[in-house]
Structures are given as C-alpha cells and as structure tokens.
C-alpha cells in the first residue's frame, strides 16, 4: 500500500513532517505514521513556549493499542499548538498533512533542515 507523501515538505526518520513558513516550522506526523498507529484517540499536551532541541520528545500520540512519542524534528521554541487536534484526535487520521498538524516551532537553526529528508527520500525510506 502506498502512503501519501507531500512534495515540498521535509521529513524526519521518526515520521514527522515539517512545513517551512518563514522562520516557523509547522510539524505533524506523516500518513505512514498515522496508519501504523491506527485510530488516534489521544494527543498529549504540548507545552507552549518550551524550548526544544532536535530529537527531544515533545508529546505523545496514542491509539487504542499503541503509543508513539513525537520528537522535535528541528530545534527551537514551540510557539503554537493545534488545539483542534488535541480536542479531536481523529483529525490526525483524516488529514495528517493539513488539519492534523500538531505544533509550530520557531526555528533556532534552519540549517538543521538539511538533515531531514525530502519527499522522495522519505517515500523511499518508508517503502513497504
């Protein structure tokens, strides 16, 4: 089965995607990740204003029988949290690249983006 991968985004090996908007990185999880988890029933709290380093655990996303930590794909400060997805976790399954975004990070070092994969590389990485 082919998972949806969106062109123009950056991807981490932990299955987060990053969309760059100026110095802001919008972060979510990929279609592959949401499918592996199954129906998401809970998205943990994300601390607004928290400074995170790349690979730090930011929150957790849980389905009925699995739990998955969400890591910061890039260093910076968490400046916005998607409250809609916390109150309705099904958005993560329905629209992982759109309404299901998780949080925004004000990037500390945009150079780190280079360490992430592009759509093509990620597609290759998660080919079944």
């Amino acid at each position: 089965m082919a998972y949806k991968v969106v062109e123009g985004l950056y991807y981490s090996k932990n299955d987060e995607w990053v969309k760059v908007e100026g110095d802001i990185a919008v972060v979510g999880i990929t279609d592959y990740a949401q499918d592996k988890l199954g129906d998401v029933v809970y998205v943990g709290e994300v601390t607004l204003g928290k400074k995170v380093k790349k690979e730090d655990t930011v929150t957790t996303v849980e389905s009925v029988k699995a739990a998955s930590d969400i890591y910061a794909p890039i260093s910076g400060e968490i400046v916005e949290v998607n409250k809609a997805v916390i109150s309705d976790p099904s958005l993560l399954n329905k629209d992982p690249y759109g309404e299901g975004w998780l949080f925004k990070i004000k990037m500390e070092n945009p150079e780190e983006l280079k360490e992430l994969m592009d759509a093509k590389a990620y597609e290759e990485y998660r080919r079944e």
Binding site: D39, V41, Y42, V64, P89, S90
Partner: peptide
C-alpha cells in the same frame, strides 16, 4: 465493541 469510541 468499538474501542476507539470507548477511548475518545
């Protein structure tokens, strides 16, 4: 039984 509903 719908476990997703039970959790959500």
């Amino acid at each position: 039984p719908d476990e997703v509903k039970a959790n959500r």
